[in-house]
Design a protein around this nucleic acid. Structure first.
Lengths: 164, 164
DNA sequence: TATTGTTATACTCTATAACTATA
DNA sequence: TATAGTTATAGAGTATAACAATA
């Protein structure tokens, strides 16, 4: 079941003036590189995700922030930005828009008056629930070409790669 | 060997004022989502790739353009941008910098005076060769946590996902 | 002194409109 | 009319510096 890949880095002809290439170009060694494949896969999946979530006004970042606040009510902006790998400075506008949409609230933190405790509103919880339904449909659509075994393997190996 | 994931979308406590979260936050359902994992993996791999290639002055896009011109001498800017999924408008500056660095040349195309035929210079070929060596080291480093079987599976499944 | 949230800012990547010269 | 290359521009995403309030 092994796929044979032909290495085409060394093109047959590149002497002096050489010929113009015809038809679809050769990607050379790129399709063998994990970085190239990850970029292509991420673009493919994000395109579907973005158009899916546009119906509820969420972007990838605001979706992940909504999910993290939902899972950790009362957490601070610093904690949310840290766990998601965002700069805390760039989280400000995301929380602003969630708050302006009526989906999240900044409350005064109990023990530290510098800090904001983040919560979802009832509307925010409904939005998260709806978004998770859309996410499941998106995932089914995007992973449709893969068998169940392949899907499980992909998630497991990516997790191993990332958690390292 | 299956990994059990606990779904934590529904947090135990979010009544009214609720408690502040302590310690590292819960990512909720995000670690189960292919889009989230692909984003994390791509950031991880690109971070290493970018710092690796900075020693030869290449970015991900200019590396891929260099590789495609190397595999398809004489091809046009439109053809290169199409196969890489770049806007042809955004390719201009990339070719500019490769040309100014002495790594690529725009020559007059034989049959169409609107078109530029792209070639690597001798220095460009040396750069590509060096970059491919660095790429191999990068890949070994980044995929180090995975077994050979896992690496092969990852590349195969990503290819299937992307080529679909 | 250090940390939380914030503003301002800058840089990269990506996307669109419009131009020119050719076809 | 359509296409190849180009310019200008605008929008995301991401990064750093600096500030006020608080610890």
């Amino acid at each position: 079941m092994a796929r044979i890949r032909t290495a085409t880095t060394e093109a047959a002809d590149d002497s002096g003036e050489a010929p113009a290439a015809v038809g679809r170009l050769d990607l050379g060694p790129l399709p063998n590189f994990v970085g190239y494949l990850l970029r292509r896969a991420q673009l493919l999946v994000f395109d579907d995700f973005i158009s899916t979530m546009s119906s509820v006004g969420l972007r990838p970042a605001s979706f992940s922030v909504l999910a993290v606040i939902g899972a950790n009510p009362g957490s601070s902006q610093s904690a949310v930005s840290e766990v998601l790998g965002l700069q805390r400075t760039n989280l400000v506008a995301i929380i602003d828009s969630l708050e302006q949409g009526g989906f999240a609230r900044r409350k005064a933190a109990k023990t530290d008056r510098r800090s904001h405790a983040l919560y979802l509103t009832a509307e925010g919880k409904r939005l998260l629930s709806k978004a998770l339904t859309l996410q499941a449909e998106h995932e089914r659509r995007v992973l449709g070409r893969l068998s169940d075994d392949e899907t499980q393997s992909l998630l497991r190996i990516l997790t191993k790669l990332v958690d390292g």
